[in-house]
C-alpha cells in the first residue's frame, strides 16, 4: 500500500525561483504583476473593512448617538466589565462553546460523507435531483425553518402526534434541557448539509483520476481508495474549512438559537449573542454589542492562529 500512499502527492510546491541573492526591492519589482493582481482587493479591504474599524472605539465610549462617536466620552473598560461581570457570563460562555463544539464535531463530517456518497452515484438525474433538493433549506431563513422544525418536533408536531396516537408518551424535544442542544445541532445539520457539500463536490471533481487508476492497479478496494485517494484529496479543503470554522467558535448560530430557544431551556440554550441581543440591542446599546464583537474577534483570532500552527506542525499547508 505504500505506493498508493505515495501516489497521493503532498501538493507542495517547489520553490520557484532563486531568491537568496536578490534584494527585497528587486523581488517586489520582479513580482510586480502579482502585486497588481492583489492590489484592488487590498484597496477594497482598507477602504471598506479597515477604515470603518475606527468605529470600534465606541466599545470604550459612552456613545451619544446624535453627537457622534468622536464627541462621545470615553468610559474605559466599562462595557467589558458589564459583559464579563454579568452573572450569566460563565453560563453563556459554556453554552456557546459547547454548542459550537458539537456543531463542529457532528456537523463537520456530514457534508463530507454526503458528498462522498453522492460521488458514488452514477445516475445523473438522481444525483442532481438529490443535490438540488438538499440545498433548498439553505435558502429558508431560520424564522421559516424554525417554524418547520417546531411543526415536526414541537409538543404538538408530527412526531409527537404520531407518538400520542400510537399510545406513546410525548417527548419534549424542544423543552427538555437534555435534548435541546442535540436538536440545535441536528436541525442545523439538516438545514445546511446539502449546501455544505457543494464545496466538497467541487473538490472531488478536481481529484486526479489517475490516482484512482493507480490505486486500482494496486488492487485497492473501494473503501481503501476512498481512504487513500479521495480523503487525501479533500484534506486541504477540510483543513481550511475547519480552521475557519474555529474562528467563529463564539458564534453559536444566533438566528437559529433565537428562534428555537424557549423559557424551559435557557440554562442550556442561551448563548452570548442571544444575551447581547436581549440585553443590548433591544435597548440600542451599540457599545455593548461592539465590545462583545471585539471579544469574540480576539478569541476567534487566537483559535485561528493556534489551529493554523497545528496545521503547519502536521505538515499540512497552512492558511498563511
Amino acid at each position: 500500500m505504500s505506493e498508493v500512499r505515495a501516489a497521493a502527492p503532498p501538493r507542495r510546491r517547489a520553490t520557484p525561483a532563486p531568491r537568496g541573492h536578490q534584494s527585497k526591492a528587486a523581488l517586489v519589482w520582479r513580482y510586480r504583476w502579482i502585486y497588481a493582481l492583489i492590489l484592488p482587493t487590498v484597496i477594497y479591504f482598507v477602504l471598506f473593512a479597515y477604515l470603518p474599524m475606527i468605529g470600534l472605539q465606541i466599545a470604550f465610549k459612552d456613545f451619544k448617538v446624535f453627537a457622534g462617536m468622536w464627541e462621545s466620552p470615553w468610559v474605559g473598560l466599562e462595557h467589558f466589565r458589564t459583559m464579563f461581570g454579568s452573572e450569566k457570563f460563565p453560563e453563556l460562555i459554556r453554552n456557546t462553546l459547547l454548542i459550537s463544539f458539537y456543531r463542529i464535531l457532528f456537523g463537520f463530517p456530514v457534508p463530507i460523507i454526503f458528498a462522498l456518497l453522492l460521488n458514488e452515484v452514477r445516475r445523473m438525474w438522481f444525483k442532481r435531483g438529490v443535490q438540488t433538493v438538499t440545498y433548498f433549506p439553505h435558502f429558508l431563513s431560520w424564522v421559516v425553518f424554525a417554524g418547520i422544525v417546531i411543526n415536526i418536533l414541537g409538543p404538538t408536531g408530527i412526531v409527537n402526534t404520531l407518538l400520542v396516537n400510537t399510545g406513546g408518551d410525548r417527548i419534549n424535544f424542544l423543552t427538555n434541557p437534555d435534548s435541546f442542544r442535540a436538536v440545535l445541532v441536528l436541525t442545523g445539520i439538516m438545514k445546511e448539509f446539502g449546501w455544505g457539500a457543494i464545496i466538497y463536490l467541487a473538490a472531488l471533481s478536481s481529484i486526479d483520476p489517475e490516482l484512482y487508476e493507480a490505486a486500482r492497479v494496486d488492487g485497492a478496494r473501494k473503501l481503501r481508495q476512498i481512504w487513500h485517494v479521495t480523503l487525501p484529496g479533500l484534506r486541504p479543503v477540510m483543513a481550511v474549512l475547519l480552521v475557519l470554522s474555529l474562528g467563529g467558535l463564539l458564534d453559536a448560530g444566533f438566528d437559529q438559537v433565537f428562534q428555537l430557544q424557549n423559557g424551559a431551556v435557557l440554562e442550556v440554550g442561551d448563548i452570548i449573542d442571544t444575551y447581547v441581543y436581549r440585553a443590548g440591542l433591544l435597548e440600542a446599546q451599540f457599545e455593548l454589542a461592539t465590545a462583545v464583537g471585539l471579544f469574540k474577534g480576539v478569541v476567534g483570532l487566537a483559535m485561528i492562529v493556534s489551529a493554523n500552527w497545528v496545521l503547519r506542525r502536521m505538515g499540512q499547508r497552512s492558511i498563511w
Binding site: T82, S86, E87, K88, T175, N262, G263, L266, A279, L282
Partner: peptide, 21 residues
C-alpha cells in the same frame, strides 16, 4: 443605564421559564 441587564442577569430565568419549566 443597566436596568435591562439587571433584569436579564437576575430575573429573566424565572420570568421567562416559570410557566414552562
Amino acid at each position: 443605564k443597566k436596568g435591562t441587564q439587571l433584569f436579564e442577569d437576575n430575573l429573566q430565568k424565572v420570568a421567562q421559564s416559570t410557566i414552562v419549566n
